[in-house]
């Protein structure tokens, strides 16, 4: 028996066929990917449903916009590009990431709760101070290549709960 015989014997074996279900699963995944790709521009521009955590982001966005406004009216330092120059430079690059990715999920995970003790707003209305630590997690996907983007935002909120004595 020589090498050619061994190769001939091996080639006589046919690899086991996959299950019929596998083809269906691949078809489903490819259709889903095509749907994501086709729907990408519309979904990104669609107004998302407003949730509680977004109010914080809104305020952050307003702050960032104010900062940009202040910077734009400040006199430009020599040697540094102006705001319009920066804008022109950015326009020549690729489309912004937010135009290409789809939001997938937003979740909030409670991490810890600190008990700040009981205080009195008025002599007859005790209240408990709580500090709630949480982690917001936002995920996006780029339908073109399946890349996933995850942003985690730690949050601390102070909560005041009225206390009633039985």
């Amino acid at each position: 028996m020589n090498d050619a015989n061994v190769e001939h014997l091996l080639r006589s074996l046919r690899p086991a066929a996959p299950s019929a279900e596998l083809t269906q699963r691949v078809e489903r995944d490819l259709k889903l990917a095509a749907l994501f790709r086709d729907a990408a521009p519309a979904s990104v521009t669609a107004k998302p449903k407003r949730t509680v955590w977004q109010s914080h982001l809104t305020w952050a966005a307003i702050g960032a916009a104010a900062a940009v406004l202040v910077m734009s009216v400040m006199p430009a330092r020599p040697g540094l590009p102006t705001g319009s120059e920066l804008t022109n430079q950015s326009q020549t690059t690729e489309a912004p990431l937010t135009d290409r990715i789809l939001p997938v999920s937003s979740s909030r995970e409670w991490v810890d709760v600190e008990d700040g003790g009981i205080s009195f707003a008025t002599p007859d209305s005790p209240q408990r101070q709580m500090r709630v630590h949480s982690l917001e997690r936002h995920q996006w996907i780029d339908p073109r290549d399946g890349a996933e983007y995850t942003v985690e935002v730690p949050k601390v909120e102070s909560v005041v709960l009225p206390v009633k004595y039985q």
Partner: peptide
Amino acid sequence: MNSTAGNEDWQACFQELAPKLLLY
């Protein structure tokens, strides 16, 4: 990928490659 014309393309390709990929 054209979602209709490409459908047959991927199926033919998958039918050919899947047993080999599975073995690997």
